[in-house]
Write a protein that binds this DNA or RNA. Structure first.
Length: 519
RNA sequence: GCAGCUGUAGCUCAGUUGGUUAGAGCGUCGGAUUGUGGCUCCGAAGGUCGGUGGUUCGAGUCCACCCAGCUGUACCA
C-alpha cells in the first residue's frame, strides 16, 4: 500500500560501507604502520578534511580540467572550499602556516580520509584512506633514502614477507633528461612531455610495442577505441625506446645490482666495471649528454649507496627507471611500493595488486606559501588497497583483528528482563563482553541471533532454573561441532550438546573457562 | 570522457516465433518442535521485468531515447 513512494536505501556511487571486520582489520593495520613511523621519530599531526580550494592547488602541467575531480563547495562568504584529495597539499599548508615554530626539518605522519570526485572502478572509490609520512625542509637525498627504508619496514610490519613487496625508486630528473635529449624541453612542449611520460608509464600494461605506438601515432585498445599518441618522429621514438629498453632489460634480469656484467650497447658489448650499477651505467651511456639526467642518475647512486649501507638489499629497495608517478609536483626522487604477488579473486581471475603507495620529492609545494625554499619529500600508503591485499593473502594481522561476539543472555520470561540484564552486568563487571537479548522473538530466534553474532556461548535461565538458583550455559562452538554427528531432530533437541548447568554463583567462572577454551 | 557488453525477487539465474495471473534455486520469515543455532518436511512474504516513450488487439520479449552496472581505454593531484 504505502510502497509506492518508498525511498530506496542506497549509498552514493563510489562510496562504501565498512563492517566490523573491516574496521577492526584497518585499526590493526594502522597501528602497525604507526609504530614504524613513530620509531623512526616522526610525529603525528591531523589537519581538517576541508581546505580552501586554492591551498590545495592544482598546478599540474595539464590545467585543462581545473577543479575537476575535486568535491568543492562555496562558503557563505563566497570563498571556495574543497574536500582534500590527498594529505600532501594540506601538510604543505600546515607546515607553511606553522613554519616559524616547527622543528626543522619537520618530520610528521598523518592518516585520514581523502576524496576524489571521479569515476569509481574496482578497488577505486571516491573516499579512501591514506597514511602519509613526510620530511619537510631538507634537500638531502638521505631524507629520500630514509623514507624508502621506512616504507619497506612498514610493508613488513603489516605482515608482508620479504619478496612480496618492493620499493622502487626513480628520479624525475632522469625522465626530464630523456625528454630534454629528444628536444622536448621548454614550456611549449609541456603537453607532449606529459604524453610521452604517460606512454612510458604504460610499459607494464602494453609492453614495448604498445609504448612505441603511443609514442608515435597512437594505439587501438581491445574494444576498438583509439588512443592518440605523442606524434614523435622516428629518431625521437628510437631514443625513448632506448630508455624503455633499459627498463625492459631490468625486468628481464630481475635484479638491478649484479656486481659486474657485460651489456650490449647499440649492439656493441661493453664491460661494466665491478661495483658499478648496471642500469645506471646504461642510462649514463644513452643519456649522458643531458646534465639533468646525469644529475638524476647521480642522486639515484647516492640513494642506493645509503640504503645498501643501511642493510636494505635490492629485494626490498630497487632502482627502477620505469617509475613515473604522479607527473605533477614531484621534482626529484620518486618512489613506489609495489606488491609482487598475484592472487585469484572470487571469479578465479588472477589479480595483481600492484602499487599500494607512492611518493617523492616535492621541492616547490611548501614554498608556494613562503618566501624561502622548503625542499620536502614524503610517501603515502593507500590504506584501503593495502588492506584488500592483506585480506587476499589472509595476513595474520587481518585475521587476528577478528573479535569474537558477545556472550548472549537469552530472555526466557519477558517480564523479568531486569534479571537478564543483571546477569549480563555480572559478566561485564568481570570484563566479559556480554549482552541480554533485546528483541521480541522466541528462544529459537534468539539462538539464531547468538549464532549470527558469533557468540561463544549463551546463558539460559527460565523459571525452573531461577527457582533452583542455576543457569544453563551452552557453548555454541562446541555445540556446532557436536551437532554434526546427530542426524534426527528429536535426538538433537534431547542431546543439548555442549550445554552445562551450573550454580548461578559459578556463572562468571564457567563462561571464562569456555572463552579460554576458544581463545 | 570514449568504446563494447549487460540490466527479470535480497542473491544467482530461467522465461519458446510477442499471447491469459512472470518462474526456479539459494537466502529471509513462520510452523512441525508451546525451552535450544545444525539436518528434514510444510508454509509465507518478497517484482511497476532499470526508466520513459513508441509499434501492436496484446510487450519481460520488438524499436528509440535515457539511467545504472560491468569490462577495456583515458584521466588519476
Amino acid at each position: 500500500m504505502a510502497s509506492e513512494t518508498k525511498l530506496k536505501a542506497r549509498k552514493a556511487r563510489g562510496f562504501v560501507d565498512r563492517g566490523p571486520g573491516d574496521v577492526a582489520a584497518t585499526e590493526a593495520m594502522l597501528a602497525a604502520i604507526r609504530k614504524v613511523y613513530e620509531i623512526y621519530g616522526f610525529e603525528a599531526v591531523e589537519t581538517p578534511l576541508v581546505e580552501y580550494t586554492d591551498a590545495l592547488g592544482k598546478f599540474l602541467p595539464d590545467q585543462d580540467r581545473p577543479n575537476e575531480g575535486v568535491f568543492s563547495l562555496q562558503d557563505d562568504d563566497e570563498q571556495w572550499l574543497s574536500l582534500r584529495y590527498d594529505l600532501t597539499a594540506p601538510l604543505a599548508r600546515y607546515a607553511a602556516e606553522n613554519w616559524t615554530t616547527l622543528p626543522k626539518p619537520y618530520r610528521s605522519y598523518r592518516c585520514g580520509w581523502v576524496f576524489r570526485n571521479e569515476k569509481p572502478g574496482p578497488g577505486r572509490f571516491r573516499q579512501f584512506m591514506q597514511f602519509d609520512a613526510d620530511t619537510v625542509g631538507t634537500a638531502s637525498v638521505a631524507a629520500d633514502a630514509e623514507i624508502c627504508m621506512m616504507m619497506a619496514d612498514a610493508m613488513e610490519a603489516v605482515g608482508l614477507k620479504r619478496g612480496q613487496y618492493v620499493v622502487k625508486v626513480n628520479n624525475r630528473k632522469v625522465l626530464d633528461g630523456v625528454l630534454e635529449a629528444i628536444g622536448l624541453a621548454g614550456d611549449d612542449n609541456a603537453g607532449r612531455r606529459l604524453t610521452v611520460l604517460r606512454a612510458i608509464d604504460k610499459l607494464d600494461k602494453f609492453g614495448p610495442e604498445g609504448v612505441k605506438l603511443l609514442l608515435g601515432a597512437g594505439r587501438k585498445d581491445e574494444s576498438g577505441d583509439f588512443t592518440k599518441g605523442a606524434g614523435l618522429d622516428e629518431a625521437q621514438i628510437d631514443r625513448v625506446m632506448k630508455f624503455v629498453g633499459v627498463v625492459a632489460y631490468l625486468d628481464f634480469m630481475g635484479d638491478d645490482d649484479k656486481p659486474s656484467s657485460a651489456l650490449l650497447f647499440d649492439g656493441e658489448r661493453k664491460e661494466i666495471e665491478p661495483g658499478k650499477h648496471t642500469v645506471l651505467e646504461a642510462l649514463s651511456y644513452y643519456f649522458g649528454d643531458s646534465p639533468k639526467a646525469l644529475d638524476g642518475i647521480q642522486e639515484l647512486h647516492q640513494i642506493e649507496t645509503i640504503v645498501r649501507a643501511a642493510g636494505y638489499a635490492s629485494d626490498r629497495i630497487r632502482i627502477d627507471p620505469s617509475v613515473v608517478r604522479g607527473l605533477e609536483y614531484y621534482t626529484g626522487p620518486v618512489y613506489e611500493a609495489e606488491l609482487t604477488f598475484e592472487v585469484p579473486n572470487d571469479d578465479g581471475q588472477i589479480v595483481r595488486f600492484g602499487s599500494v603507495g607512492g611518493g617523492g620529492r616535492y621541492d616547490g609545494l611548501v614554498s608556494r606559501f613562503l618566501s624561502e625554499p622548503v625542499p620536502s619529500t614524503g610517501f603515502s600508503i593507500g590504506v584501503s588497497r593495502l588492506l584488500a591485499a592483506l585480506k587476499a593473502i589472509s595476513s595474520p594481522i587481518v585475521a587476528a583483528a577478528k573479535e569474537p561476539g558477545p556472550v548472549v543472555v537469552l530472555v526466557m520470561d519477558r517480564d523479568r528482563v531486569g534479571d537478564y540484564l543483571a546477569l549480563a552486568k555480572k559478566l561485564r563487571d568481570a570484563g566479559i563482553r556480554a549482552e541480554a537479548y533485546l528483541g521480541s522473538s522466541g528462544m529459537k530466534a534468539q539462538m539464531k541471533y547468538a549464532d549470527r553474532r558469533g557468540a561463544p556461548c549463551v546463558v539460559i535461565q527460565g523459571s525452573n532454573e531461577r527457582e533452583a538458583g542455576v543457569v544453563q550455559i551452552k557453548d555454541l562452538i562446541e555445540g556446532a561441532k557436536a551437532a554434526e554427528t546427530i542426524a534426527s531432530n528429536a535426538e538433537y533437541k534431547a542431546a543439548r550438546p555442549a550445554q552445562v548447568e551450573v550454580a548461578e554463583a559459578d556463572l562468571v567462572e564457567t563462561v571464562r573457562a569456555i572463552l579460554a577454551r576458544h581463545a
